[in-house]
Amino acid sequence: MSNSSQNVTSNPEEATTTGSSATPVSSSTSTSTSTSTSGGYESARDTDGDGTVDVVHRTTPEGQAEIAHVDDAGNVTLIERDTDGNGTYDTAASQQEDGTLRVANDLDDDGQVDLVSYLDEAGNLVQQDSVEDGIVVETLVDTNADGRPDVSVLDSNKDGVADTVIRDTDYDGVVNDMAVDVDGDGDIDFYSSDSDNDGSLDSTCTGEDATAPDTDAGAPEPAPTDDVVL
């Protein structure tokens, strides 16, 4: 997560969380410590000696340790938090250029990102990536902003390429179709749909007869190099 520990990279395979202690204050680091108005501890630090605050170490009123990273204009660019109180930062939130909030979580404290969620300005979930061994294995997308994911993109063999798309095309909570690329050549080998909307996929095509679903209601393929920072 923070620069107080190991690697922070653009590759989720290499992304790691911080250690149990924050970056030590060097002789060139300016520190200002106070008690915040919300009752928690707060320590602002100028880590590069340019006269402006770069990071703010603090505890929330709930007692959770938190680090806020600040740019030269005073804007918070990244917030890291130890939500379970075990001494390591397991959650990182950052604002994206498109206005969404990106939240990365290490759910099992192994130093690797397990879940990446994207929230819109109202706090609604628009996309969620599940990560295993540095690979995005499932992406859930809410394409119509109703608060429910209606597209699931899977990488079932964890080779870094999506091979299965499952969709709820009429947004009623029932799966309407599924397309699978079995051999990884980029072509759909198996396509199944629910013709009567009873919740069971009952129409199936294979091989050359398998037709790709309309991509207008689909989701972008999850990228294994999603810039996970935690």
Rank of each mutant, 00 (worst) to 15 (best):
S5W: 04
N11Q: 11
E13G: 10
E13I: 11
G19V: 02
S21N: 13
V25E: 05
V25P: 01
S43I: 12
R45K: 09
D46W: 02
G49P: 06
V56R: 05
V56G: 01
H57N: 15
H57I: 09
T59L: 02
T59H: 02
T60H: 02
P61L: 07
Q64G: 02
E66V: 12
A68C: 03
H69W: 12
V70I: 15
V70P: 07
D72R: 07
G74Q: 00
L78P: 06
G85Q: 06
G87V: 10
Y89T: 04
Y89I: 14
A92N: 09
A93V: 15
R102E: 15
V103F: 05
V103Q: 14
L107Q: 15
L107S: 14
D108C: 08
D108Y: 08
V113Y: 04
S117P: 03
Y118I: 04
D120Y: 01
Q127G: 09
Q127P: 00
Q128F: 00
D133H: 08
V137L: 00
E138S: 07
T139N: 06
D142F: 06
N144V: 15
A145N: 14
G147L: 13
K158W: 08
D159T: 09
R167D: 10
V174E: 06
N176P: 01
D181T: 11
S192T: 15
S193C: 00
D194R: 06
S195A: 14
G199M: 10
L201H: 10
C205I: 06
C205V: 05
T206D: 04
G207M: 10
D209H: 04
P220L: 00
D226P: 01
V228N: 10
L230W: 07
